[in-house]
Design a protein around this nucleic acid. Sequence first.
DNA 1: GTGGTCTAGACCACA
DNA 2: GTGGTCTAGACCACG
Lengths: 133, 133, 133, 133
Amino acid sequence: MRIQVQFDLGQPVYVQIMDQIKAAAASGSLLSGEALPGIRPLAEQLRVNRNTVAKAYLELEREGVIETKQGRGCFLRDGQTRYRKAARTEMLLPQVDGVVVQAHHLQIGGDDLIALVRERVEYFQNARQNTKG
Amino acid sequence: MRIQVQFDLGQPVYVQIMDQIKAAAASGSLLSGEALPGIRPLAEQLRVNRNTVAKAYLELEREGVIETKQGRGCFLRDGQTRYRKAARTEMLLPQVDGVVVQAHHLQIGGDDLIALVRERVEYFQNARQNTKG
Amino acid sequence: MRIQVQFDLGQPVYVQIMDQIKAAAASGSLLSGEALPGIRPLAEQLRVNRNTVAKAYLELEREGVIETKQGRGCFLRDGQTRYRKAARTEMLLPQVDGVVVQAHHLQIGGDDLIALVRERVEYFQNARQNTKG
Amino acid sequence: MRIQVQFDLGQPVYVQIMDQIKAAAASGSLLSGEALPGIRPLAEQLRVNRNTVAKAYLELEREGVIETKQGRGCFLRDGQTRYRKAARTEMLLPQVDGVVVQAHHLQIGGDDLIALVRERVEYFQNARQNTKG
DNA sequence: GTGGTCTAGACCACA
DNA sequence: GTGGTCTAGACCACG
């Protein structure tokens, strides 16, 4: 599971963390019973205060998404709603619309935008290939 | 043009207002030279403080999206970027990458993402067409 | 760095703060990477509201003069403009013309004006030299 | 007498008008007993509301700088302090310093700035020559 | 009526 | 402690 936060997004960092853990659970990249990243390592990786990660985990536990076992870590609980593909697409919509709107303001045409997205998709695919290899 | 804000979204209210005005401009429901809603009326409609709307408008003016005329109101500016295309593309890159990464997290494949972007691009293009017609 | 504001100047207080921080940066009394006074302490010192100082800092960040780091403070950025020299000169033109016109209104001849500009340029250069030494 | 206002200066427009009329009086380009521009023509020329010019004139009359003769116009009163050259130079200083600081932030060197000022001085001199000719 | 500035004071995210 | 957001309400400049 890969988590990343943006500090200039306006959205609170702990909410970003929560959302991404939920998305990981929904997408199957985090399985039921599997351990979440430790608070301190994750905080260091994200270059974020430990309290911020702790708050995200606390909120997730309150929502019943994860459970904390004292001294052993946090684990994904069972019974997660596995979002269907339509739901996952819907979660992505606002962000896609944001890019489309921004492209329009920057006077970047639709075709150019699509080409750019395609280019970046391929860039990340290559990056993942190289990591595996 | 219809604007609505959610207070529990994490995203600052003034950013939500900015995004929706940008989207309205991109979709053609707000035309170049057209007046934006007044700060005070919009604040009342959104049940938000005047300063919050004012901050959104101030940011939009700073980004060159709108222009304010003393005592007359705020108006949508013509789209005219002073940056070269390469610079504009570069400005869009982080946001595009964010979408690509998020799509990956949601296990939405590259082709599906590109199809989604194409769909939204066409949606906004159609919206603009219908406004003109 | 010493900052002071006048309330009866007509010029907004937050602009006065911005100008003085810019001047401090240009004169070398505030160095690249150095921390600016905190918003709250400066507000108290100037007997001004916190929001007024915050607005000045926000504008300075948007102009790329400073950068703010969450929970740590605001810091003077390195001078690195992304514009080409022609564009930068163009950005300075209106202000130069304003001075030229104003000098004419005050019946200060062209040569006297140029001499005055040269004097002030050297004044700031000396200030920077002395800070370094 | 030539008057110009800047809307983004922060300084109230009516103060700008007052200052420039005072400067014109001080510099001799407006003589004692001479008529000031009419309120409405000046307002149109400056693209400013008539009330704004009227307020400037009202303030000037309160300060004893001008006198209003009903139905005939406004006239410069006697006994104006003719500023000495040193005083006039001092009035120009803040604006000059502003340009020097701004040039530094735009990474425009002292020599380039001086060359630019010289260029604009000559530009305006030529413009005046052509007007006379 | 419009937008612009400022104050006083609250709560949040982060270190 | 830091900066960021928001509210409530005041006064000013402008049309």
